[in-house]
Each structure stands twice: as C-alpha cells, then as structure tokens.
Design a binder for these strands. Structure first.
Lengths: 218, 218
DNA sequence: CGTAGTCTTGAGTATCCTCAACGAGGGTGG
DNA sequence: CCACCCTCGTTGAGGATACTCAAGACTACG
C-alpha cells in the first residue's frame, strides 16, 4: 500500500458543467477506497460515471504486466462512455474516499431523449472527454521525456484550476505518471529532477509542485 | 505533389451509424483536393463534419515544424467537435476528391434538442470519436516502433472493414504515418521492412499491405 | 525498529533519431 | 520522347535518448 498523503483538499471545480442536476436525478453515489476498482475491462457497460470528489484513472492492463493509463479523472470529469456493450478499460480510485456518481446508462439515454437539457449535458460531457484525450495525444507526441513530463505537469495544473503560488499536488504515484506518459518510472523521476535543476519547477515535497517558469509545451 | 495512386475504390462503410438522415437535412456537401485544408487551428468552430468519401486527417502543426496527426478520418467518421468557440486542430484532405458533409453547429444543436433521433446520433458520433482516440493512445503506448506500426496496421485494417485476401491500402504517406505514431519516417520505413521480413505482412505495392499473420498488438 | 512501497540516482545497453545517400515513380518542359 | 526535377520510400552509419538492472535513501506503518 502506498503512503497515504494528507494534503489539504483544495476546492477542485474544473470545467464545472454548469449544473448536472438534470442527470443527477438518476445517479447513485458510491465511495471507493484507494486502489479499489470502479469497473474492469469486460464488465458490462451498464453505467456512466462522474467523479464527485477525489481522483481516479482509466487504464488498460496487458497480459505481459504493462499498464497504460488512458486518463486521469478529476472532479466533474465524466467517464465510462462506451460504444460497446462492455467496458474496454479498467477504472480505479487513486485516492481514499473517492466519490463517484453512477448513472444507469439505459435510464440516462432515455432521459436524454425526453429532456433536452440532459441531452445537451451528455453531449457536452462526451465532447469534454474527447477534448481531454486529444490533448493527451499531443503530450504523448512530444519528443523527449522532459517535454512529456512538462506537458503532463502543465496539463495537471490547468485541470486542477491551480492559482499562482498554490502548488499542483501530484496525487498519483510516479508509477502512475510513467504509465500515463509511456515512460519508465526512472525516466519520469529523472525528468522531474531535470526540471527542478532548471528551476522550471520547485517542490515543497515529493508530491507538491510549484510551477515557476511557464514553459511552452506544444 | 505526391504521386497520386489510383487503387480501386473499395466500398468503405466502417461503423455505419445506422443512418444519419436526421442530421443530413442540415448538411452541405463539399469536395476537397488532396492536401486542401478543411479547417485550420483557430478557425471558428462553426461546423461539425463527416467524411462521405475519401480520407482526411486531423492534426496540429507546431512552431518548430513538427506536426502531430491526431486522427485519420475515414468515411462516416465524424470530426471537428470542439468544446471551444474555435477549432484547436487542422483538418485536411488526404485524397483528391474527398467529400465531406458539413453540419452547421448551431443548427445541429437546435436539431438535437428537438429531434431525439438526431440527438442520439450526435451522442453516438461523439462517443465513436472518443473511442477512436482512446484506441490510439494504446497504440502510442506500445514500446517499440515495430509494435506501434503493427498496431497502426491492425487498426487501419479494422477500420477499413478489410476482408481476408483484400489488401489494406495505405492511402496516407509514410510521413503521415510517422506523424501519427510519433516516429521518424525512417523508423516507420524500417519497421515496415522488419514486418515484411518476419512475414507478418506482405506487400503488393508500397501502398498495399496484406496482413498475413494476425499479431497481438495490445 | 523492521518492513514494504516509493523515489532517486548510477552504469550499461538497446532503441530511435539525425544526417546522408540513393532508387523509384510521376509530372513537366524542352 | 526523354532529360530533369520533385517527392516518396528505403537503407546505412553514428550519436542521442530512454530502458533495464542495480543500489540506496526516504517515508509510513505495524
């Protein structure tokens, strides 16, 4: 079990989708422990999900032990969309006490077809998810490991709605970051050290990053 | 100008979205030359699009000359979704005579809110686009260049609805493939040569690939 | 205080990129 | 019709980068 880090919980309201009340009438709330699975590859895609608080990731585990993280999920991010009958990814909580709103898929599709506001919210949620993943491809497309890690930190800062002089908190492990960027843990660690030496970032602890210089990363 | 390759045009109907008639009432059809821009980064995101015939790509051009291709767009693929007021990518035709259905965004959103069938199609289109990009991340996450190119070929075979004994046609250049996979052209070329020597593929010409062995690629 | 997981750093190796050269194929103009 | 040019595709050589293996420091927790 990883060391649990008790940083202050800042209010994270990224891209608040201007109320999801129309959808929430159908939601059930579930609470997850650190590392607990929300759904697994192959499970029937019976629900769509939204992070209420905490953090999770969407990933794929391979036979040879490798793992690729497809998305980090922050509060108000929707996930679990699938065109198939089954989920094609694993989703799991990163933080203890991560709270997730679960929307029954059939019920939600029915709602979307009767309530135009709900339909609009669903379309917007899908497009925001699409936008996140596309941004990720550009980060993955960066050439060097330092550039990828820089891109990751800038993305996280953006998505965390970080204000100046407030650190970005790396609630995920270096292993998670490595699997997110397609690098080895060692390379991620070295890249962070390089950024510190270059004074692009400074760190209050191993999990708290101050972005000092705003680097262009795409 | 690149050599224009006149391969027979196979009927490509991947993931036919069970009729888009509800949406098509608002569409205008445009025809593009090879290399012609459909929209550019920064253009107002006034329309959504669907490939009718031919092929296009969605990409981002960087200041230093690099280019990243975010998606290859095949017939019936929707694209141009943006949560912002402006497009964040470039889209351009790969083949001469590529035909695109252009849906005015405002008109379409209005339609989606009055016609539940249209709304459903839009949600499905967004989720299919999301699904494509997520699949791509897994390919990018593969370790070696050979694995990435293999993943690309398998994806293209899948999306082209290729039957056995029918070659997959690489209508894009090696440069496009390289920018899609985040590799150099030389590495792509070498990877293809390796796959040929290993008899995973065989080639009728430089742009026609027979997939001989079905390799696991994720 | 020992253990387990995380994070960092070093050394050597494998892979990919850059630079370079060359062949193939089309289009163009003399 | 053919020489020329241009782009595309392939292959080789050398150097840069990231991975693997290894070891050690740090932290939380029992």
């Amino acid at each position: 079990m990883q060391a649990t880090v008790h940083y202050r919980q800042r209010p994270q309201i990224p891209h608040s989708p201007s109320g999801v009340s129309a959808l929430d009438s159908r939601a059930t709330i579930r609470r997850f422990h650190r590392g607990e699975s929300i759904y697994s590859n192959g499970d029937p895609a019976s629900h769509w999900y939204r992070i209420v608080s905490g953090m999770a990731h969407s990933s794929r585990q391979f036979a040879d032990g490798r793992r690729r993280i497809v998305d980090f999920l922050l509060p108000n991010n929707f996930f679990g969309f699938s065109v198939n009958k089954e989920h094609r990814f694993d989703a799991g909580a990163i933080l203890d006490g991560t709270t997730v709103a679960c929307y029954p898929r059939g019920s939600l599709e029915a709602l979307a077809e009767s309530d135009m506001e709900a339909g609009r919210q669903l379309r917007r949620a899908a497009m925001e998810a699409l936008s996140r993943v596309q941004a990720r491809i550009l980060i993955l497309g960066r050439v060097t490991s330092v550039a990828k890690v820089t891109g990751f930190l800038m993305e996280l800062k953006e998505r965390s709605c970080a204000e100046p002089d407030v650190p970005v908190i790396l609630q995920m492990s270096r292993y998670d970051i490595a699997d997110y960027l397609g690098l080895s843990v060692e390379t991620v660690s070295r890249a962070i050290s390089v950024l510190r030496r270059r004074r692009v970032i400074s760190m209050a602890s191993k999990r708290e990053v101050y972005v000092v210089k705003q680097e262009d990363y795409d």
